[in-house]
């Protein structure tokens, strides 16, 4: 049983030594950003991958975590080390509320996707119009570099902080998948009526899943705010994060422990490579090309690799192991 945590330890160890090989700030910024997206995707994967409830609006949770983190510091003078867990709880509360409303109304499938999308849009419009959140100008977290203030002179330190959160997400997902709750959640995904007939309280299971899911995504939002120290409604509640949090698990492997992490690294790595390659070829940055690649990958995955890259990997291993 314990040995199932070994792959997690190895993966985290590999990711932890990466900053030692580079001193480039661009690389470190990219890695931190990729891990923040991976964390948001881990949150999405609990509800979407294990629970089968596809949310198109995880930006609502990411943004709440991000704004919570920034506003608790700027407006209330709360220390970031306390603000981060508080922001996570705020995101989880928003998730629980949206879940209670939509799951009680028995929304699923496309309807659930639509209602989450609409909630994220409402949050975006409100954050854009309200003075408390800084309106369209956004919020700026003042620069004060000291460890007590969760701002580090060395970019690697923040990367390790994000990595620690991703590691916690991996362990949590693994523990959940092995626990009774994980089995209930998968049962609800596979056949909700059958699960209910066997005595699974599907509403309670889905509510717990969305609360956990939104909390993890909100944590990613809080880290994002602290990393870039600036937010506006289009960043925090924008559809980009809803889309990337959903793409990463689907491309990596839906409902698997490593799927979101693998998916986020591959997705953002490929996006960055395309941007650089095309930028060189055409002599200037072309906006949007990385996202075109994401869209193509999504369709290819749905068409040819329904279990994602990890599923493809398992198939290849099985082929190799087959006696000749």
């Amino acid at each position: 049983m314990r040995s199932s945590y070994l792959p997690i330890a190895i993966a985290v160890a590999v990711l932890a030594v990466l900053p030692l090989g580079t001193s480039s700030n661009t690389t470190l910024n990219f890695l931190s950003f990729a891990l923040i997206v991976a964390l948001a995707a881990q949150g999405w994967n609990i509800l979407g991958g294990y629970g089968g409830q596809f949310s198109f609006g995880h930006a609502a949770f990411f943004g709440t975590g991000a704004y919570g983190m920034a506003l608790l510091q700027v407006r209330f003078g709360i220390n970031p080390w306390l603000a981060l867990p508080l922001a996570t709880l705020m995101g989880a509360a928003v998730g629980a509320a949206i879940g209670a409303l939509s799951f009680r109304a028995r929304l699923r499938g496309s309807y659930f996707a639509l209602v989450t999308l609409a909630f994220a849009e409402v949050f975006r419009i409100l954050a854009n119009a309200w003075g408390f959140t800084g309106g369209a100008a956004g919020v700026l977290v003042p620069l004060r570099i000291e460890a007590a203030n969760m701002q580090f002179a060395d970019r690697a330190t923040f990367y390790w902080l994000v990595l620690a959160c991703v590691a916690a997400g991996l362990v949590l997902t693994q523990a959940m998948a092995r626990a009774r709750f994980g089995a209930w959640l998968v049962a609800v995904r596979e056949n909700e009526e059958a699960a209910r007939a066997l005595g699974v309280d599907s509403l309670a299971v889905k509510l717990r899943a969305i609360t956990l899911s939104s909390g993890i995504t909100a944590l990613a939002g809080g880290l994002y705010a602290q990393k870039f120290l600036y937010l506006d409604a289009g960043i925090a509640y924008g559809s980009w994060i809803s889309v990337e949090a959903l793409l990463a698990p689907i491309i990596g492997g839906l409902g698997t422990v490593f799927g979101p992490l693998v998916g986020a690294l591959v997705l953002l790595g490929l996006g960055e490579a395309t941007k650089i390659a095309l930028g060189h070829a055409l002599g200037g940055a072309v906006p949007g090309v990385d996202l075109v690649v994401f869209g193509v990958l999504l369709i290819l995955c749905v068409a040819f690799a329904p279990r994602g890259l990890l599923g493809l990997g398992a198939n290849v291993r099985r082929l190799l192991r087959r006696p000749v």
């Binding site: 089968g52 596809f54 198109f56 499938g109 496309s110 996707a113 889309v243 959903l246 689907i250 072309v286 906006p287 949007g288 090309v289 996202l291 075109v292 994401f294 869209g295 193509v296 999504l298 369709i299 749905v302 068409a303 329904p306």
Partner: peptide, 21 residues
């Protein structure tokens, strides 16, 4: 059904960003 949802989402991402590019 959920695959159709994802494929059309993928198409929308491609079209929107190809137009942006």
């Amino acid at each position: 059904d959920s695959n159709i949802l994802l494929v059309t989402l993928g198409l929308s991402i491609i079209m929107e960003n190809a137009l942006l590019a």
